[in-house]
Design a binder for these strands. Structure first.
Lengths: 212, 212
DNA sequence: CGTGCGATGTATCGGTCCGATACATCGCGG
DNA sequence: CCGCGATGTATCGGACCGATACATCGCACG
């Protein structure tokens, strides 16, 4: 999962570890807290060893002004390689069981702009199936085993059940939107000097309804 | 976390591993999937080594009917000790940062029937604070950094934000309920469902029926 | 009658990820 | 001039997961 996320982010721009963590936190804030350095750095090393990314010590190319007064412990900037992009494409398209758990789905969804429509649909439907199963499990417990559980536990299940129902509805909307809408795949963003355009497929929930 | 959950469950009845896993899945179904044996069995061994639980090979005390035709690979039944109960009380009352993440809060909440009211209140408020922080983070991203993110990522954040808002409201209700007396029942105005008469009394200490 | 299959049941192993910790630099306000 | 919070890289032990292995039991189906 972390591997996929890093590869995805580095496709938008080269970054160093700290930055990667912040961007990841921004992109996945809805899903999970910031990832730990204890997993980030080892993973970066793993990716580098595999050849998916390359490490480049920060060189002040234009500035010869700041010499070795202090050794200036360099930030290490990572850049994705061609093989890395290939790897990303492979990871994003193939769906295992872990693709549908909370974290896995979140990461995949966060990179939907780089995913083709068929895959998006497949993942959304898989996630829906997963949540429906969880929902049925909760209904079972609330129905059949209710007398075995105390009121707090029941309340927890009730709240969880409601969350499931909401997510299924959300997914339904997204799926319908995906099916009927032409959802253009995002063009590869040019990394050349210009500012990045906000390339977006049609807003998934474009018919934003007001909440009472 | 697993330690706390096991200790809590074994307080209701002695169980073997498989049973423990199923009960845990039922009790925490709203929070997380079933726990893995790869963590369950090592943890059981750890708890036993620490003296919080004891292991007893299953002996058919009353039934001499089923003799040793087959060697009947025994299920190993675990029972909580007095020290274990003490340990549980200590763990359930003390709140670290991990008490307020999704899993930690879920486990604590699931054992609220064995938690005193002051602690319940403290945990609910801590959780609310945590969720409010997450909510603010999401609002920030949706407000300030919206143009940097694609439509899918934004939709993810939006959904997450809504989930936060719902949970805060849920917690508010629970907190108000907790403050103003007893009975963990949460009335749903407008959504009258099946009436539950099963409200377990809030006795934090001991009202649980022991095994006959 | 047997045979295979799903539920019950215990157990280990490699790997991912987290939380705590350590250490160094930088800019800023007091 | 000092401290302190943000930036930045890195490691270590431990918690937990997913896959796997193996054994028994009851029962449906041929």
């Amino acid at each position: 999962m972390l591997e996929l996320a890093i590869l995805g982010l580095l496709q938008e721009a080269p970054m160093h570890g700290y930055e990667l963590r912040k961007e990841l936190a921004a992109k996945l804030g809805a899903i999970r807290a910031a990832i730990s350095y204890g997993s980030l750095y080892p993973t970066l090393r793993r990716l580098q060893a595999a050849g998916w990314i390359t490490e480049a010590a920060e060189t002040p190319a234009t500035a010869e002004e700041v010499p070795a007064l202090t050794s200036r412990r360099g930030r290490v900037v990572y850049t994705i390689t061609a093989e890395g992009k290939e790897r990303f494409a492979q990871l994003i398209a193939q769906a295992g069981p872990e693709t549908y758990d909370d974290t896995g789905f979140g990461v995949h969804f966060a990179f939907f702009a780089r995913t083709d429509q068929a895959t998006r649909l497949r993942i959304l439907e898989g996630r829906r199936r997963r949540i429906e199963e969880r929902r049925e499990g909760l209904r079972d417990v609330l129905g059949r085993a209710a007398e075995r559980l105390d009121a707090y536990t029941l309340e927890l299940q009730r709240h969880g059940l409601e969350a499931c129902e909401r997510e299924v509805r959300w997914l339904e909307e997204l799926i319908a939107n995906e099916r009927s809408g032409r959802a253009p795949t995002v063009p590869q963003p040019g990394t050349a000097g210009g500012r990045r355009e906000n390339d977006s497929p049609p807003p998934p929930g474009e018919s934003r309804k007001e909440r009472p």
